[in-house]
Lab assay of single mutants.
Amino acid sequence: MDPFVVLVLCLSCLLLLSIWRQSSGRGKLPPGPTPLPVIGNILQIDIKDVSKSLTNLSKIYGPVFTLYFGLERMVVLHGYEVVKEALIDLGEEFSGRGHFPLAERANRGFGIVFSNGKRWKEIRRFSLMTLRNFGMGKRSIEDRVQEEARCLVEELRKTKASPCDPTFILGCAPCNVICSIIFQKRFDYKDQQFLNLMEKLNENIRIVSTPWIQICNNFPTIIDYFPGTHNKLLKNLAFMESDILEKVKEHQESMDINNPRDFIDCFLIKMEKEKQNQQSEFTIENLVITAADLLGAGTETTSTTLRYALLLLLKHPEVTAKVQEEIERVIGRNRSPCMQDRGHMPYTDAVVHEVQRYIDLIPTSLPHAVTCDVKFRNYLIPKGTTILTSLTSVLHDNKEFPNPEMFDPRHFLDEGGNFKKSNYFMPFSAGKRICVGEGLARMELFLFLTFILQNFNLKSLIDPKDLDTTPVVNGFASVPPFYQLCFIPV
Rank of each mutant, 00 (worst) to 15 (best):
V5Y: 15
V6H: 05
L7V: 10
S12K: 04
S12Q: 06
L14G: 10
L15M: 13
I19R: 15
I19E: 06
I19T: 10
W20N: 06
Q22G: 12
S23C: 10
R26T: 10
T34P: 14
P35R: 12
G40N: 02
G40I: 00
Q44R: 10
D46F: 04
D46T: 07
D46H: 11
K52I: 05
L57F: 15
I60H: 13
I60K: 04
Y61M: 00
G62K: 00
V64H: 02
V64Q: 02
Y68K: 12
F69S: 08
E72W: 06
E72V: 04
R73E: 06
R73T: 07
M74F: 09
V75C: 06
V75D: 00
V75L: 05
V75H: 00
V76T: 04
G79Q: 02
G79W: 00
E81K: 10
K84E: 07
K84Q: 10
K84S: 10
E85T: 08
E92T: 08
G96H: 10
H99W: 11
H99D: 07
A103D: 05
E104F: 15
A106Y: 08
R108L: 06
F110Q: 12
G111E: 02
I112K: 03
F114R: 06
F114E: 04
N116Q: 13
N116G: 08
G117Y: 01
W120I: 02
W120Q: 04
E122D: 11
E122C: 11
I123E: 00
I123S: 06
R124Y: 03
R125M: 10
L128V: 15
L131P: 02
L131W: 02
L131C: 05
G135R: 15
K138R: 13
S140L: 06
R144V: 12
R144I: 15
Q146D: 08
Q146T: 13
R150Q: 14
C151V: 09
V153G: 03
E154I: 08
E154T: 10
E154F: 08
L156P: 00
K160I: 09
A161E: 12
C164I: 12
C164D: 03
D165E: 08
D165M: 02
D165I: 03
T167R: 12
L170H: 00
L170A: 07
P174A: 15
V177N: 02
V177S: 03
V177Q: 02
C179Y: 14
F183L: 08
F183H: 06
Q184E: 15
R186E: 03
D188C: 13
D188N: 13
Q193K: 12
K200M: 15
L201T: 09
L201G: 04
N202E: 15
S209G: 11
I213N: 08
I215D: 03
I215Q: 05
C216S: 08
N217Y: 13
P220H: 06
I223Q: 06
D224V: 04
Y225Q: 07
P227E: 05
P227G: 09
G228E: 04
G228W: 08
T229N: 14
H230Y: 08
N231G: 09
N231H: 14
N231Y: 04
L233P: 04
L233W: 15
K235M: 11
L237T: 09
A238L: 12
M240Q: 05
S242E: 15
D243L: 15
I244V: 09
E246D: 10
E246T: 13
K247I: 10
K249A: 11
E253P: 07
D256Q: 09
I257K: 12
N258E: 12
P260S: 06
R261H: 05
D262H: 02
D262E: 00
I264W: 00
C266D: 12
F267G: 03
F267C: 03
I269T: 12
M271I: 12
M271G: 07
M271D: 00
N277T: 12
N277W: 07
Q278G: 14
Q279M: 06
Q279T: 13
Q279V: 12
E281C: 11
F282I: 05
T283Q: 10
E285N: 11
E285L: 06
N286M: 06
N286G: 06
N286L: 04
V288M: 06
V288H: 03
V288K: 07
V288G: 07
T290I: 08
D293A: 04
L294R: 01
L294M: 13
A297P: 05
A297Y: 07
T299A: 12
T301N: 06
T301F: 13
T301S: 13
L306D: 00
L306E: 00
R307Q: 09
Y308E: 03
A309C: 10
A309D: 00
L310S: 02
L312T: 05
P317H: 07
V319K: 05
V319E: 06
T320P: 06
T320R: 07
K322G: 10
Q324Y: 09
E326C: 01
I327E: 01
E328G: 14
V330N: 09
R333I: 13
C338F: 06
C338W: 05
M339T: 12
D341W: 04
D341S: 04
M345G: 01
P346D: 05
A350P: 01
V351E: 00
V355Q: 00
Q356M: 13
Y358E: 02
L361G: 04
T364V: 14
P367H: 04
P367V: 05
P367F: 05
H368F: 04
T371D: 07
C372G: 10
K375A: 10
R377C: 05
K383R: 11
K383D: 05
T385Q: 04
T385D: 01
T386H: 11
T386P: 07
I387W: 00
I387F: 03
S390K: 02
T392S: 14
T392N: 09
S393I: 02
L395Q: 03
L395N: 07
N398T: 12
N398F: 12
K399R: 14
K399A: 09
E400F: 04
F401E: 02
M406D: 14
F407I: 00
L413R: 01
D414A: 07
G417L: 09
N418P: 03
N418R: 12
F419W: 05
F419L: 13
K421D: 14
K421R: 14
N423K: 12
M426K: 05
A430E: 10
I434P: 03
I434C: 08
V436C: 08
E438G: 06
G439I: 08
L440P: 04
L440Y: 04
A441R: 00
L445G: 04
F446L: 02
L447G: 05
L449R: 03
T450F: 00
T450Y: 00
F451Y: 15
S460G: 14
S460V: 07
S460K: 04
S460D: 04
L461N: 13
L461I: 15
I462W: 09
L467A: 05
T469I: 15
T469M: 12
N474E: 09
F476E: 03
S478Q: 15
P480Q: 07
P481L: 06
Y483A: 04
Q484A: 08
